[in-house]
Design a protein around this nucleic acid. Structure first.
Lengths: 155, 155
DNA sequence: TTGAAATCAAAGTAAAATAATCGGAATTAA
DNA sequence: TTAATTCCGATTATTTTACTTTGATTTCAA
């Protein structure tokens, strides 16, 4: 029932790209050092995000990654699904119309799984990258100290 | 992000006990054969449920398990937590007041994890064993066929 | 034109979590 | 007493996760 590092690191990477690729693409190595993720592992995550069409790349020197869509058109659910696959807590065939489950007719627990799945889906799909960017700005604005903003959270 | 068999089998076992231990306790072996779960594995699950105080046992011949509380006082969340442990999708120290996370001050993703965790908690805590019993009755009442009610769902 | 900077791709590995299995001791109703 | 049952701890097998490794390909810039 845990979100793996794929989802956690990947969402941070996505936000990093959103924040730092305004004019120029950002390289894997710069994301990796800012976010404290190993470069080769980050490569895999970024590959999934690209395959899902939410970032685009420029190869070669001075290359890197940037968003492929507007931040308000990228939901947290899109990002997590690209990284983790289906987010359903239970993938129950009885929940699909065409699903073949011998006992679906008398199955009660399927309603439980459905309710849990729906609550997760609703939560992740109503948050967007644009919300995170805005929230991030707010936190930095509120901070009037000389605090080291380089201390990062690994969640 | 998946619920393991512990949670899935365990909830079915719990509902089985609720439905079949009205007068006499039900044995591991009878639950196992009805629900199609291996006996030794089911033992482990039932041990967790007992430790959490939601079922009680009678040892020896004719022994078995029965509910330790009223079905309306047992939430699906209680059951799943007894089996799976904490249901939080991300256990982020920055979310707790006393949690020490160097970067919590500028962490934005923690709001995402919090929102997901809350949605799961709300969903599982508002469903109770009594709801499942009622739903189960409804399905059987609605069924006027001679259908084999022994075909079970493994979810 | 050439070398460095980068993405791209696929395979391999170590550790952890999950899902069981197994053997036997303790308890109790008949 | 005996058969049925819970209880308990240890062990093993399988799967998933979290990386690492290797090497190729593309592109820019000096």
């Amino acid at each position: 029932m845990k979100l793996s590092t794929k989802g956690r690191y990947g969402l941070r990477a996505m936000l990093d790209i959103a924040l730092f690729s305004r004019s120029e693409p950002v390289s894997i190595s710069s994301i990796a050092s800012r976010e404290n993720i190993s470069e080769p592992y980050l490569e895999q995550l970024v590959a999934r995000l690209k395959k899902a069409g939410m970032i685009k790349s420029r190869r070669g020197a001075q290359g890197g990654y940037m968003l492929a869509k507007e931040p308000e058109d990228i939901s947290v659910g899109d990002i997590l699904r690209a990284l983790e696959g289906n987010l359903d807590a239970v993938s129950c065939p009885g929940l699909k119309d065409d699903g073949d489950c011998a006992g679906a007719q008398f199955c009660v627990t399927k309603y439980v799984w459905q309710r849990i799945n729906e609550s997760i889906t609703t939560a992740v799909d109503e948050m967007h990258l644009s919300d995170l960017i805005r929230e991030s700005q707010k936190l930095r604005d509120a901070d009037n100290s000389e605090a080291e903003q380089d201390k990062i959270c690994l969640c």
